[in-house]
Design a protein around this nucleic acid. Structure first.
Length: 205
DNA sequence: AAATTGATTCAT
DNA sequence: TGAATCAATTTT
């Protein structure tokens, strides 16, 4: 049956990113316009967890800076950062207010607003390439640094919702992609068999 | 396998 | 003030 979309509970995001990350699989990221209509959405199929002080691969590892401030804010925030001189990446903030940690959104299966996504991702040849990778996901959803710090639970302009699809009971996992420290931690998860997962090769393993 | 691109950060 | 780094993507 069809379930109504409901926002994820902020309390559920306030925990350890390593536990929140696989739980976020199959949740839906939605962009709404000013009248509340869904203009783009996609199902999250690949994530990575980043902790704070005890995770050398985390932007928050060396403490709070202007760039990573959102990660130290309340759970449910959207942490957006710029990297490689050209790419935006989006994370869901975890842990209680004051403690840093987040889940990187690495890939999505597009659900709604595909024409707009194709327009913002002209290099995507197939629809499965629209949001396959963290920077591609941001392009497909129209996310940039101007939306750093917005709230995914309040849901404007971006929302994290549960449409009734449970997370996979047996998510696949690996080490994280594109990092050079803490390469042994198996903190990347994806929906088994989903073709929308990014091709990124894990660091170390 | 190599080019692309610029903010951020830490070290001088 | 300078150099290294970088939660990647695209093209060759």
């Amino acid at each position: 049956m069809h379930h109504r979309e409901r926002p994820v509970a902020r309390e559920r995001l306030a925990g350890d990113p390593v536990e929140v990350a696989p739980w976020l699989l199959n949740k839906v990221l939605v962009r709404r316009d000013s009248s509340g209509r869904t203009v783009r959405s996609g199902r999250i199929v690949e994530v990575e967890a980043y902790r704070g002080a005890d995770d050398p691969a985390s932007h928050a590892h060396r403490g709070r800076t202007a760039r990573n401030a959102t990660m130290f804010g309340p759970p449910g925030g959207l942490y957006v950062y710029f990297t490689y001189g050209m790419h935006w990446c989006a994370n869901v903030v975890c842990w209680p207010d004051g403690e840093a940690g987040a889940v990187l959104l690495r890939a999505m299966a597009p659900l709604a607003g595909l024409p707009a996504m194709r327009q913002d991702r002209p290099t995507a040849r197939r629809d499965r390439d629209l949001a396959r990778g963290p920077a591609r996901l941001c392009q497909a959803m129209g996310i940039t640094g101007s939306e750093d710090g917005s709230d995914l639970v309040d849901g404007v302009p971006l929302a994290l919702v549960d449409d009734g699809t449970a997370p996979p009971s047996d998510p696949e996992r690996s080490t994280r992609v594109g990092i050079s420290s803490a390469t042994d931690r198996m903190w990347r998860w994806w929906v088994p068999g989903d073709l929308h997962r990014s091709p990124g090769r894990p660091a170390g393993g």
